[in-house]
Write a protein that binds this DNA or RNA. Sequence first.
DNA 1: CATGAATGAGGTTTCATTCAT
DNA 2: GATGAATGAAACCTCATTCAT
Lengths: 184, 184, 184, 184
Amino acid sequence: MSQSQKTREKLVEAGKKVIYEKGFHCARVSDITEKAGLAHGTFYLYFESKEKFLLSLLETVKEELLSLMENGISLIREGNSEQGKVLLFLRTFDLMIKERELAKILFFEAICTSAEFQKFYKESKEIFLRKTQESLELLGLSKSEIKAHILLGTARHFIEMLILSNKEVSSKWIEVLKEVGVFS
Amino acid sequence: MSQSQKTREKLVEAGKKVIYEKGFHCARVSDITEKAGLAHGTFYLYFESKEKFLLSLLETVKEELLSLMENGISLIREGNSEQGKVLLFLRTFDLMIKERELAKILFFEAICTSAEFQKFYKESKEIFLRKTQESLELLGLSKSEIKAHILLGTARHFIEMLILSNKEVSSKWIEVLKEVGVFS
Amino acid sequence: MSQSQKTREKLVEAGKKVIYEKGFHCARVSDITEKAGLAHGTFYLYFESKEKFLLSLLETVKEELLSLMENGISLIREGNSEQGKVLLFLRTFDLMIKERELAKILFFEAICTSAEFQKFYKESKEIFLRKTQESLELLGLSKSEIKAHILLGTARHFIEMLILSNKEVSSKWIEVLKEVGVFS
Amino acid sequence: MSQSQKTREKLVEAGKKVIYEKGFHCARVSDITEKAGLAHGTFYLYFESKEKFLLSLLETVKEELLSLMENGISLIREGNSEQGKVLLFLRTFDLMIKERELAKILFFEAICTSAEFQKFYKESKEIFLRKTQESLELLGLSKSEIKAHILLGTARHFIEMLILSNKEVSSKWIEVLKEVGVFS
DNA sequence: CATGAATGAGGTTTCATTCAT
DNA sequence: GATGAATGAAACCTCATTCAT
């Protein structure tokens, strides 16, 4: 990784942590650079503005998520439905757990900031919903639309619990949903 | 209603709308007073600070919700489980739909602001979860804890859809959950 | 005393206390009316502004002081120098002790506020100095100018101690000065 | 001096002048920065608040004064009482004359602001009094306590004259006190 | 590339004063 | 006379952004 990329990475990592802890509005650019061990002004060599910085964080997590989901769908299409399910419903969730800073930013900050971010959030959510429904259909489950809603809602609920209480629910969440028949 | 109470009410109504639209941090006190048709300083005759104002909004909606839930539980305890269910799972949802400004503030703003608000949110959420589980048990449903999680998660998901897309899901949401067996 | 005069008196008494405690700038008009048990707006039926209120307090204490000093000087002129001294150096000091709120306002607030008040303070101080010197001359004391300075300075020092520590020095202060020869 | 120190110094110098002229409460932060030739916000890069700024000014002058007094006392202890007296009773006074802005702030503003400042003032005054008395004792003068009070009171009186009238009393003030026997 | 001092627009908050009742 | 709700000018303070080094 070039020096330049390393510095950028430092800012992203620091930014995630600071925004997770204080929220986007309360996170100062100087908090981020301080945590990154860089000078205040350096931030603006890598990002146009604090808003654009947030957007780039959100796009990162959105793309990671989508990539996982699409890989899962491909696997199911190719007949490998077990591995596909793992990617779709476990790896995505694990990703959210690992990147809980980004998850919180995506699921909460985005909806609380300016119209631009809400739009971003709304569009992302619709894509996730569609992909989830598509996967459920591929898996041959009935009432796929309803179940997609429940899946997303419950997933977000568990992520929130993780954020609020630091309680790991991780891979067991699918079991939870199976028990009440969402997966049958 | 006294003059004083009317003014307070005006500020609350204006505040709910402005915070709903712009988010707590982007909502200026002057936006609120302007929408209320009052002078800037008037706000501070009724509320200590913008933060305390938010807290008072949150407490209002929390209390309304809890009151509905407790009435529902009482009805079920008295044997009137049909009316109890209505209060618990429909009226609460209708309240959120009617007061979508407050709902958004409670479910999103609270978790994006200072530590004080997060604490408030976390505590509220735990109470809602407990009450929901309690009601499911009273209704004789198995796996009450799991179902309480799913109910809350899905409810929030539908509220978010309402906020983002203005699509009314209203009272049909229970049907949705019934179909996948959450209510059996 | 008429109703009107009583109300005015209440405001003056409350104002003295509040300004003594918090200082002129930190004393709010509403603090004064609250302590007086009156409505906020009532203040402006009796005084043009907060500044004019302060000025009227200062004029009161200035006149009381001057009146005592002049009576003392008259007595000395009439040959009654013992009683004159009492008025001049004890009663004035007792007045400051009794009216410590006003004393503090006169000796400290006046010099810390606007130019108008500084001017008032400076002029008052010069009058006190002149009167003190005049009395010392009438009493046949040498170095009257020097002693007048020392008297005023020490008096103010003792008043400050009273304000800061609530230690009563009262009438003994003259003894203190006698011991070092200021009165001989 | 680094750029940073220079800017800080500019703010301190400007602040002293503005507070001297208008008093702490009437001195706006923007007055200070304007006089310093800096932008408004710069003030807050160097000082937490207007109150903390005042406190730092007060501490500066208190320490300068104490340092002079302690050096004077040391000299007397070492037998060099003439030079010690000069430090104790002339240099301190000269310092107040040179730093009349700070002197005014210490002797008048401190007692007119919030409780925190009054406490600071009271404690400082007690230290000055103790040090003065200690020096008088070292010099073998009788009635050291009384004389310490008179010295402080008169000194303050002369400082006030300097502030109000711009009349330099300077080094002659000791002569004045000698004449009435304070120094014998 | 990196620094960190400086900027200033924009927000929150205060409170002397006014005025309808 | 008295009330107290409403006003809005003016202060403090913050912090995203710029820029000289």
